[in-house]
Nucleic acid binder design. Structure first.
Lengths: 338, 338
DNA sequence: TTGAAAGCGCTAACAG
DNA sequence: CTGTTAGCGCTTTCAA
């Protein structure tokens, strides 16, 4: 293996073109005050040498990078994917490029201190601003702007785009109650996450409001994953008096409930109605009744907000609320028994 | 405009701890030759100031970055998403983090010269190696290793993971022919892409091998998108003698064919069989018969290869072939008419 | 065990 | 129009 092939630098280009580095830098940055002839020569040399400016060195000097950062714990997670679709679209429409930073795993990065680390990593050096998905920290030290999508903290000290989790849960419960369900199971989300709590609260309040007593045995913990949903689904279905409908705190767990129902030989929705939350791509194809959090739009809006902040334009509000939307699909029906 | 809030640097930390920058640098890099007492003090100051080292400056000096780069034109595209799932997983299992670079749009980055640009951008400065998805260039100037996933070029001069496009197409055609189909439409992929050509060739050869004459009017152009698939699907279904089955060069177009069939009031698969290629997430839920390119595994393997290259270990071969797999699902059946 | 100083590759005054 | 020069924040010899 060739021992550390040094890459071609601006110096090499300068030397090869018989000019100084600053002249090369000028053509690199599209400055106008360069003789056409010199310009052409340098461009030629750059092409011949296959030179590309060193991003690190460049961003160290100049403050404008034309780059947006995105910090996500896990880019393979359906939830993250939906948000990234929207972010991607907004980026495509802008003149900025996107740099996504991920550790590939929630575990590797869960701690709030890590988030701060990643944000600084990008914002202090490479990017003009960052978007952080599902942030745990309630505050960030950063010199460039930051926007959070669906932060875990209730009242973060930075701009964010948030869904209406509570109202979404109310909506879906009202819908189930309207169908006649009175015995509705709930699979919780990760407890440390604020939005999961809001959904649970919506579940409780809707029942209370409808005069239905909350049966604590119908509320089981969960972790936002499909295997977790399956397991908890089986647990609920094993109850002496099993629910006629199950509300899972997110679509991923709801998919697990589908699996559980199938294993038990139950038909959906005749024997069991299933509802979820988030409207990930799979939900649509499974016919899952769900609350659309409009994740892609949240990502899209986050980019818009961030671009405004970068340009020092005012934003409408610190918190952009994205209204949720009830999507009724085939996983839901009236209860077969009272 | 707030006058450019400078972020806290190693200098600040040094000053605040009453030591020199080199000492701070030492504790930052876990060097052992620092007095425990000094070490503790500095760590404290770092925490208090919320200092994070500047990635740009750091990577400019040291050569090990613990960062893998990924260049994708569009992270919202289902095809890219599948690959990223595998990459994400491999990253999660490694000690490396991932930096994804995207322009958000194929248009903004299509030219091969741009790819070179992005690769250098990452590899010359920030990352220890890069993975490039669907690369067009047949060669790259780079000092750090590079691995391509499903490159467009036939014989690229860099390591790559490739699917068996030709054999996959043969498999699916043999399957259709075995069901009795003789009148099979084909919707092409983007013509400049090598794998699209291989799939078409498989279509042709399978027919020829089976003694069925290739009807050129059944072969229509395409662009790998769902709207494109729909349009071309409608076109094929408008033929005087429409096909009994349609093979779309990828799943996204196949989904468009679904839509076309629906618009025409055709039942799938009774009136029309539809097959695709790639096995994106939607394919599974739609019941689409498809060739599984095992995209996630391709991404996973690509990371493995890259890590070996980074560590200067030998790789098995320049090209890692990922065998495709026929997945028979409900979008496919015997022809209703001869 | 620590500090001083030399750059990494680049941009941005400032001169000419 | 072009070159010289001073750093950006950091790591890394080399001395002390």
């Amino acid at each position: 293996m060739p021992p550390k092939k040094r890459s071609v630098t601006i110096q090499d280009v300068a030397k090869a073109s018989g000019v100084s580095v600053s002249t090369v830098s000028r053509v690199l940055n599209g400055k106008v005050d360069v003789a056409d002839e010199t310009q052409a020569r340098i461009v030629g040399v750059i092409a011949k040498l296959g030179y590309t400016s060193n991003l690190a060195a460049r961003s160290m000097r100049s403050h404008k990078k034309n780059l947006i950062g995105l910090v996500v714990p896990d880019i393979g997670f359906p939830y993250s994917i939906e948000i990234m679709k929207g972010i991607n679209q907004a980026i495509a429409e802008s003149t900025y490029d996107l740099l996504v930073y991920t550790t590939g795993d929630v575990q590797k990065s869960e701690a709030a201190s890590h988030e701060q680390h990643y944000v600084s990593l990008l914002n202090n050096s490479l990017t003009d601003g960052v978007i952080i998905v599902a942030s745990a920290a309630s505050d960030f030290i950063t010199n460039a702007p930051i926007v959070a999508v669906d932060p875990h903290a209730l009242k973060p000290n930075y701009p964010s785009v948030q869904g209406t989790n509570y109202h979404g849960a109310l909506d879906i419960m009202d819908y189930l109650l309207g169908l006649g369900h009175r015995h509705i199971g709930f699979i919780c989300g990760r407890p440390e996450i604020n939005s999961a709590g809001r959904r649970l609260q919506g579940y409780r309040d809707a029942l209370t409001r409808a005069g239905v007593e909350v049966d604590e045995s119908l509320i089981v913990p969960g972790d936002f994953t499909t295997p977790g949903g399956r397991e908890r689904g089986l647990q609920l279905l094993s109850l002496a008096n099993p629910p006629t409908a199950i509300f899972a705190a997110n679509d991923q767990s709801a998919i697990g409930v589908f699996q559980a129902a199938e294993e038990r030989g139950l038909r959906v929705p005749q024997d069991l109605s299933i509802v979820g939350f988030d409207n990930i791509t799979e939900a649509k194809y499974l016919g899952l009744t769900t609350i659309d959090q409009r994740l892609a739009e949240m990502g899209y809006v986050a980019v818009q907000m961030l671009l405004k902040l970068i340009k020092n334009e005012p934003i409408d509000a610190l918190v952009h609320k994205m209204p949720t939307q009830l999507l009724v699909r085939s996983s839901c029906g009236a209860p077969s028994r009272p």
